[in-house]
Design a protein around this nucleic acid. Structure first.
Lengths: 142, 142
DNA sequence: TTTACATCCTCTAGCTACTGTAGATTCAAG
DNA sequence: CTTGAATCTACAGTAGCTAGAGGATGTAAA
């Protein structure tokens, strides 16, 4: 029987976040004490761990919802879970490629800063100038 | 004299986004036609390009505000702009390191999926199990 | 048993950086 | 003069939380 606070501590989640997950139906409504405080079982600890671990891997709450649903129905095919993971992997690889390009440009900016007045600052100049930029008008991506 | 729509097209921004930037004071209030429609000058095109380019490099709107302010005052020291860029570079490098770790774990998940029932699915198993996970209880990061 | 105090409760609002919608108006071309 | 695309304002919604007010509860020590 865990209080919401100890559940939070065990999973590295904020108390409010747990209540938020309950609100959006990602966590079930737990039992309550007579006074109305939430008390959790081990099953809920497992579920929350699953959610947090998935979040750390970058899965969206919607994706996690699907994964939890699959996990609740062991007779279903594994393919769906695999597809979700693959989709996630693709996203991660896209983000990495993008960040690599950004890092290159940022490094160039920083190394070329001469340390004078902003009038001569390469950082600002590079930001002003799109032409050397390899990225087109696509989405920005978190 | 550009309409908001052509400014949007030239900079790869949505019309609403431009109005939003105006609302939060990132873009100045432009001139208007008699009928009340916005009309932009080249200076505003430059400013918006600067903003969008900076966004693509991952700068927050607050950081961009600072950069614009520096850019508006050429007598100030370049150091501040450089510091902002360096901060940004650090963030990008942190994100990349994080994504690398995630990619490793996701790849492991995907490759180990046997394609049976979800009951045996490694994807779900890995998500359930935190122990092999290298990441601690730190923030998730966009 | 009382008291102190950490933790819990609900509810509401705020955050970032937009995006979308409704319903009315304006502009430019034909 | 008409048509239709583009624009206007205002407001609501998105993800994924986070923070705060103001009050109730749980627990351990005095």
């Amino acid at each position: 029987m865990l209080t919401i606070g100890s559940l939070a501590k065990k999973t590295g989640t904020k108390v409010q976040t747990i209540r938020y997950y309950e609100q959006i139906g990602l966590m079930p409504e737990p039992g309550r004490t007579e006074g109305g405080q939430r008390r959790y079982e081990d099953a809920e600890l497992d579920r929350l761990s699953f959610i947090r671990h998935s979040r750390q891997l970058g899965f969206s709450l919607d994706a996690i919802r699907e994964l939890l649903d699959l996990s609740d129905h062991p007779e279903k095919s594994c393919d769906e879970a695999d597809a979700i993971a693959r989709r996630q992997l693709r996203q991660v690889e896209q983000r990495m490629a993008r960040l690599k390009a950004l890092r290159t440009e940022l490094k160039r900016m920083v190394h070329e800063c001469s340390g004078g007045r902003t009038a001569d600052c390469r950082v600002l100049e590079v930001l002003r100038d799109h032409s050397e930029c390899l990225t087109e008008h696509d989405d920005i991506g978190a």
